[in-house]
Amino acid sequence: MISMSEHEIAAAGYHAVVSATGAGLRVLRRGGVALTETWAPGTKPPLAAGLVLFPWPNRTRDGRFTFDGAAHQLELSEPELHNASHGLVRARDWELVDAGEAFVEQAVEVGGEPGWPFPLRHVVRHEVGPDGLTATHRVTNTGTGRAPFGLGIHTFLRAGDAPMDDCTLQVPASRVQPVERQRNLPEGPVRDVTPEEDLREPRGLDGLWFDTPFTGLAREGDGRARCWLRAPDGTSACLWTSAELGWVQVFTADPRNDKAYPGRGRALAVEPMSCPPDALASGDDLVVLEAGASWTAQWGISGVLPS
């Protein structure tokens, strides 16, 4: 059941709505202009839009992984493909920790689910201000042994009312993890982007399709990597990530693949991630916390409006 509970925050011309279910970012606007795709309150977010993916993002092959010598079997949330997909918390209601006019802080705990014995507490704070939306994630190992995890956020960007195919996309990534298309699992080692995959300069999205994990993100002087979706009228949505989120999954919702975004057809997800698909099994960029230790990461979205 999807909770009707959600939290509105606003400041400096930005307005956001964050759901209790999955800590999902349901709305982000600047001056009334949409910077993310949305969905009706109290309904299931289409294509996991806006939801937090934890304690792993993307897919775990056959739901199996080994950590510190012990084998684990996760529930197969994608049974038709025999994958454990997108973690444990996207359909759960997060507890309200604190809130104000411009921020909301929510928390969830995992540990004891089938295949997941690792106790972790995850607190996320969404806050809006002059620089847009900032989301701060803090994960703490509340158990007595080491604990692995990964984090992703299934963010769909939007540049006002412009159709996606009228926009350009820029992602400062030099490397890519190839995936096989049937199950969206890693296929071969990380490699340099090909010309067809290269998004380091703005590219028109008409005719392009992606479901691709990118890494090798170029960072600016403040340590952030920035991805840009730009509309012809100058409206732009910029998604940035801190160094702890070293991956970005670019996904095109497309009716031709039976994955249309309701009311929009083609739509674009740019998803910050700490690790690639199947990281629980491969160990690639997997976060491992000692007992009592914490880890923090940030991402955010700002908007540029036509002058």
Rank of each mutant, 00 (worst) to 15 (best):
I2R: 14
M4T: 15
A10C: 05
A16K: 00
S19M: 13
S19Q: 13
G24L: 01
L25Y: 05
L28V: 10
T36L: 03
G42E: 06
T43L: 02
A48K: 11
F54C: 05
P57A: 11
G63P: 09
T66W: 06
P79C: 11
S85P: 05
R90G: 04
R90T: 12
A91W: 14
D93I: 13
L96R: 08
F103G: 09
V108H: 11
G115L: 09
W116F: 02
F118E: 03
P119Q: 03
E127R: 14
E127G: 09
E127S: 14
V128M: 04
T136C: 04
H137C: 12
R138M: 04
A147K: 08
A147P: 08
P148D: 01
L151E: 01
I153D: 14
T155I: 12
R158K: 15
R158L: 10
A159R: 02
G160P: 07
A162Y: 04
T168S: 13
P172V: 00
Q182L: 15
P186W: 03
E187D: 15
L199S: 05
R200E: 01
E201P: 06
G204K: 07
F210G: 01
A218T: 14
A218I: 04
R219S: 04
E220V: 01
A225I: 04
T235Q: 01
T235I: 01
A237H: 04
L239I: 03
W240N: 00
W240P: 05
S242F: 00
Q249A: 13
R264W: 00
R266N: 04
M273H: 13
A279Y: 07
L280D: 08
A281T: 12
D285Y: 02
L286T: 10
V288Q: 07
E290R: 14
G292C: 08
S294G: 11
W295A: 07
Q298C: 12
I301L: 12
V304K: 00
